[in-house]
Design a protein around this nucleic acid. Structure first.
Lengths: 353, 353
DNA sequence: CAGCGCTATGGAAACGTTTTCAGATGATTT
DNA sequence: AAATCATCTGAAAACGTTTCCATAGCGCTG
């Protein structure tokens, strides 16, 4: 690997000058700079990142710790993070599959000296606090923490309000027995969405019941499996709120196989508004969340505290979740819709606005 | 930030000893090691990664360059990469949205000194070769290159065979006019799948036609939009092969809205076999690809060349693509299937085996 | 022409590690 | 008691940069 010294020798200058050229320092003669660029090009030289960050103690890199990488949700978060990061000329050091605080802390340690700050998604309750105890000193931003952590920024999704609005909509449509398919035990998003479901029921004076809260794990299969429990409940529910769209899709598949009409016999609402939601039969009513934006905001917050202006005060942001109405909830019958607009034209974007 | 010197002072030893302790060097007295661990714990010390890689010239990090991060495909690739990497105690430095070779090379340069090797996904034809010209010296693995690049490993998906098997199946079912919805212009996967489509037609003595090759860009919306072209073609096709499942889902949605029965009036086959494929109506026949494995293999190949055994000879791997039959192609009618097995039980996994 | 300020450049000291080499200590052998 | 040896530890030299400080050259001003 060629070093700055090789380039200096080839260009007949000192290493200080080469360094200046590569850092855009204007106090270098034009012809000298040209000679340096030539030599560097010839030797295929580029400054060594590790050495550079050792002296400057800046890395142009953000560490990202996620509990998992499976599914649309994480992929969108990363996409948002990457977008915002590359705009600021930062790179991303990624590590996932961190179940508990101990693993997170270990991974964060391993990143020491390689990152300027950390974005940590703590999907289980209490994780953020535990992690913060160990990692308190460095700049970090939490994604979707259970509570507002002290002394650091966080950005989260208003899962609770989203869940509530979905179920309130079902109630407004006249449903009185409404089931839900839960997310994984201990998962914050899942618990918050469940909380929104319960809030809505309570708000309407409807009673919650364990047999209406079916277990799930955010996979399509869980949705499929939930159908039997759904149909076995007494009294039988007329609507169901799935904690995410993958499970809602599973529900639709399972209900179709079981011969239950949607929304006629069973209204279905999901959460996330994934791309294929409008391609399902019937098109899935879902709670839209801009997950990509979640990632972008996290980066933004982190860069604020990392930035040259010194650490900004920590902030807390909450992203809204909005109900997107389609046919699976029963509030719009398909025939009411202008057929042409849903055809091959721009209908695809219509409910995306 | 506390350094090795602080720990050495606190523990009353030299920095060499502290370094030995943290690297598991056995030639350190037990009580000394204990004192060092204590001091390190007290001061919350962990070795600085940048400094470490500067001396050892190893980073325990793999660079990953992708053209994009949108959709199931990339998210699965990254998941596979992350899985294999963390098993080998490597981290991932990620950078995406690289449209052309120039950007890729720039991003790769910026990673110099921070990674031990690179995994590059060059989704456009010719990109791999162009990149290789600039980055030839360092260890790298290509994902899905257009041609086998010289002098480096690559792993790819057998898109062509997958596309061919899908269309051959439709032909075997008696279809004679078969359309396709293409992926993005210039995209390798898209072109290969299209190639498979044409191979199958040619193999059966059927003629290809531009009006049967509808444009698309791998999004659901593209599938929706393709419906009008599909129905306008003369003679009207009785089957369509979509270059990915997102577009196939869009097709199903659009065909449903247009009142065209699937598979009765129009058989549909997709590619990727995403999770919701079996939740669509009708369940989507698709070509299964283990994208996660693609990522895992790439890491494996890269670690072979990076590893302590010195650079292994470069290898080329091709992952198979297998047709998964469901109802949208018309070869299985829903009523023929055992209803119970497709109910709430294990049916979800049935066609996943 | 002395003195001054400005610009372009070089020398050298950091940055925080790992690792080689040598030395100290104490135990064992002759 | 001297010699050998094994074990543990420390001093110091890398690794490839950035950046502070010094200085050489040069055109002005007075």
């Amino acid at each position: 690997m060629t070093t700055i010294r090789d380039v200096a020798r080839a260009a007949g200058v000192s290493i200080a000058t080469v360094s200046r050229v590569f850092n855009g320092n204007p106090r270098v003669g034009e012809d000298t700079a040209l000679r340096v660029w030539d030599a560097a090009g010839e030797l295929d030289y580029w400054p060594n990142g590790a050495a550079r960050s050792l002296t400057t103690s800046r890395t142009q890199t953000l560490g990202v710790l996620l509990p998992d990488l499976y599914g649309d949700f994480f992929s969108e978060v990363i996409r948002g993070i990457d977008q915002a990061a590359r705009r600021a000329h930062f790179q991303i050091l990624l590590s996932s599959s961190h179940a508990d605080p101990i693993e997170i802390v270990a991974a964060a340690r391993a990143m020491r000296g390689r990152v300027d700050g950390l974005i940590i998604m703590a999907s289980d309750r209490g994780t953020a606090e535990a992690v913060l105890g160990f990692l308190g000193r460095q700049p970090l931003v939490f994604l979707n923490p259970y509570l507002d952590p002290d002394g650091c920024s966080a950005v989260s999704i208003d899962n609770r309000a989203g869940g509530r609005s979905a179920v309130e909509h079902l109630i407004a449509l006249g449903h009185r027995v409404i089931a839900t398919v839960r997310g994984p035990e201990g998962n914050i998003d899942a618990e918050e969405r469940l909380g929104g479901y319960r809030d809505a029921l309570a708000g309407a004076g409807l009673s919650a019941s364990p047999q209406l809260e079916l277990p799930g794990d955010f996979t399509e299969t869980a949705g499929f499996r939930a159908v039997s429990g759904l149909l076995a409940a007494v009294p039988r529910p007329t609507a169901v709120f799935a904690a995410n769209d993958a499970m809602a899709a599973g529900l639709l598949g399972g209900l179709r196989d079981a011969g239950v009409a949607v929304p006629g016999e069973m209204a279905v609402v999901g959460f996330d508004d994934i791309g294929v939601a409008r391609c399902l039969t019937p098109p899935l009513t879902s709670v839209r969340v801009d997950v990509c934006e979640l990632g972008r905001r996290a980066v933004q917050l982190l860069l604020e505290t990392v930035g040259p202006d010194g650490p900004a005060p920590c902030r807390r942001e909450v992203l809204p979740a909005r109900l997107v109405l389609r046919e699976s909830c029963g509030c719009r019958s398909r025939t009411e819709l202008p057929v042409l607009a849903r055809g091959a034209g721009d209908s695809g974007e219509r409910d995306r606005i």
